[in-house]
């Protein structure tokens, strides 16, 4: 992972793609604001945007840096990327190409949401769902929305881990 900063423009690039740093007040506030709007499916909008961005950017990263690496190595780099961006720890060891489970014992959105709003009864790791879906499609060379990811357990509700169920639909 390589970060470039242009001080004259205040532009940050992660492996040549524009990124920005935001705090939990905004990142969690963004989810909450969208969830509160009647007629808007916050989950779908956030997951789709994350899915697309992680798919396109990781696909390019694979072409530039990982084309000769094994699937396991590509997944290892994806896990490092997730951690580097501050989203937490994620474990793909029980996942196969056609799906399976992914676990997380440290989640940015759980940490941030707890700090700002406290517990909730429904999962909050929407961005992680999009991340998993996009990354897997890039690694296994599928279409952008080939994987359906659902957070089946979330630490925000008092579970020990966040658990994601992944299903290949094409």
């Amino acid at each position: 992972m390589h970060i470039d900063f242009s001080p004259e423009l205040n532009i940050l690039k992660l492996d040549n793609v524009g990124v920005s740093l935001h705090c939990h007040h905004y990142n969690c506030g963004l989810i909450k604001a969208i969830e509160e709007i009647e007629g808007i499916d916050a989950y779908s909008i956030i997951v789709k945007a994350a899915q697309e961005e992680f798919y396109y950017n990781f696909k390019n990263y694979i072409v530039s840096h990982l084309s000769k690496e094994s699937i396991d190595e590509q997944i290892k780099v994806a896990v490092e990327l997730y951690k580097f961006m501050g989203f937490g720890i994620i474990d793909f060891s029980e996942l196969r190409e056609n799906g399976g489970k992914v676990y997380s014992n440290s989640s940015y959105y759980v940490t941030g949401w707890l700090a700002k709003y406290g517990r909730r009864t429904t999962p909050v790791c929407y961005v992680t769902c999009g991340f998993i879906s996009g990354i897997l499609s890039a690694i296994f060379k599928k279409s952008v929305s080939a994987y359906i990811v659902q957070e089946t357990r979330c630490m925000i509700s008092g579970n020990e881990l966040c658990e994601f169920s992944i299903r290949l639909i094409e």
């Binding site: 940050l12 992660l14 990124v19 935001h22 007040h25 990142n27 697309e52 961005e53 937490g88 961005v127």
Partner: peptide, 27 residues
């Protein structure tokens, strides 16, 4: 070590600018 960025009393995370644009503009 837990993949969490704590700085200045807040939790920060890095994400693609295009992600934020897509979410908000689509809403």
């Amino acid at each position: 070590e837990k993949g969490i960025m704590a700085a200045f009393g807040v939790y920060a995370a890095m994400n693609y600018n295009e992600f934020y644009f897509k979410v908000v503009s689509r809403v």
